[in-house]
Nucleic acid binder design. Sequence first.
DNA 1: CGGCTGCTTGAATAGAGTCAATAAACGTGG
DNA 2: CCACGTTTATTGACTCTATTCAAGCAGCCG
Lengths: 222, 222
Amino acid sequence: MLASLEKEQEEVSEGDFLAKENTRLDELFILKKGWVIATREEASGRAHIPTVYHPGDVIGLSDVAFTHTPNTIVAATQLTICRFPREKLTDVLRQSPRVSGLFLALSMIDQALMNDRLIVSRRTDGYLRLVLFLLQTMSRLRLMEPRLHDQFYCPLTQEQIGAATGLSGVHVSRSIKKLLELNLIERHKRFFRFADEPGLNSLVGYVDRYESLDLSWLPEGD
Amino acid sequence: MLASLEKEQEEVSEGDFLAKENTRLDELFILKKGWVIATREEASGRAHIPTVYHPGDVIGLSDVAFTHTPNTIVAATQLTICRFPREKLTDVLRQSPRVSGLFLALSMIDQALMNDRLIVSRRTDGYLRLVLFLLQTMSRLRLMEPRLHDQFYCPLTQEQIGAATGLSGVHVSRSIKKLLELNLIERHKRFFRFADEPGLNSLVGYVDRYESLDLSWLPEGD
DNA sequence: CGGCTGCTTGAATAGAGTCAATAAACGTGG
DNA sequence: CCACGTTTATTGACTCTATTCAAGCAGCCG
C-alpha cells in the first residue's frame, strides 16, 4: 500500500515552491530526500518557519483539512518527493485501517514535537530554543540514518534557523557561540556535532519522542 | 458510531486529574462540559499550559501514541466527560473510515491552531499573545454555542492564562489593561467581551480555522 | 580580484520578568 | 450579616535579555 504511494518520484530544485500561502493545497508530499521549510509571514512582517521537514516526512498534513494553507512551502535544498493527491488520502481511509492509523499517529507525533517547541519558545533564554532545535533535528535525522551518530549537516542559514526557532539571525550566532564556549557542541561550517549530548538534553529536559512511541493500538493487516 | 462512544458520562470535580505527567495514558476523553488544561513543568521549573480543552474536544489525541504523556491533565472546572479507551480507537480505525478521517481531521486542526500559537509566541509583544488566546478561545466556544456572540466567561486565573500564553501573571494583568485602554475589549470579572473584534483580528492577522475547513476528502458512510 | 551572501561582533533600545507591596474578591465560620 | 484569611489582581521599581542597527569580516563564485 505504502509502496504504491511512492511510485513516481520527482526532483525539485532548491528554492522552488511546493505550495504558496493562501492557496488551496490539494495534495500531500512525501519527502524522500532533502529539507523543506514551511514559511509564514507574521502580522509584523517577520518571517517565521513553523516546521522543517526532513526525509521521510509527510508534508502538508496540517494543511489539507483547510480551504487554503497559511504556509508557503519551499524547498530548502534540492529535493526528491512523491506527490500524494488528496483523493488518495480518502482511498487510504477507506481501504487500509492500518495506514489510516499511521497517518493519525504521524499527526500525533507532529503535535507532540510542536508542543515541545511551543513550551521552549516561551522561555526567555533564547539559546535553549536553539538547543531544542538541534536535538529535535538530530533525533529526526537519526530515524532515517542511524549512522549519523552525533552530527549532521544543517543546510539552513542562521537567518533561517532564527526563523525556525523564533530568534533573530544575530542572536542565533550569539547562541551558537555560547554553546561552543560551554563545550556542548562543535561546529565546522554548517556541520553541527554534539560534544555533550546528555548536557544538552538536561538543559531543556529533552525527551526523544520517537523513542517512546507506542503504536500497539494500530490495527493489524493492511 | 459516535453516539455509542458517548454512552456513559461521568462527572469530574475541579482540580481532579485525568492524567499525570510521565504516566501511561491509555484512554482518550471526550469533553462534554467544562474546561480542561494540560499542564507541564518546564526545565526551569515554570509551569506551562500547552493546551486548553473546551466542550466538544477530544482530550489526549497527542498523547495516546506514546508510552507516557509529558502532560498533566487537570479539570479547570467541574466537568462532564466520556471515557474512550484506546482499544476503541483501534475499533474505529477498523470499522469506520469516516470517523477515522474525522479523528485525523481533528488532529490536523489542533496542529493548525498550535502553529498559529507558536508563531505568535515567538514575537516579543506579549499582549498579542493574549489577543490570540482570546480570539482562539472565542472561536472555539462559538463552535458549540453560537449564541455567545462576542463574549465568554474564562474560568482561568490570570496566572493560568499566563501559563497558557507564555506570559507572567503580572504581565497578563498589564496586557489586559492595555487592551481595555485601546477599547478593544471590555471585561467584567472573568467575562471578556470583544468591543472591536476586527481590530483584534488585524492585530495578529487572525484567521478562524474553523471557518476555513474543507472536509470534502472524508470518506462517506460510517 | 571584485562582489555577493552569510556570519560575527559591538552598542543602544525596548520589552518582559521578577520582586514586592497593595488592593480587591471570595469563602468560611461565627 | 460581618470579620477574617486566602486567593487573585493590580501597580511600581528594577533587572535582564533579545532585538535592532550598524559596521566589519569571512568565504564562495564568477
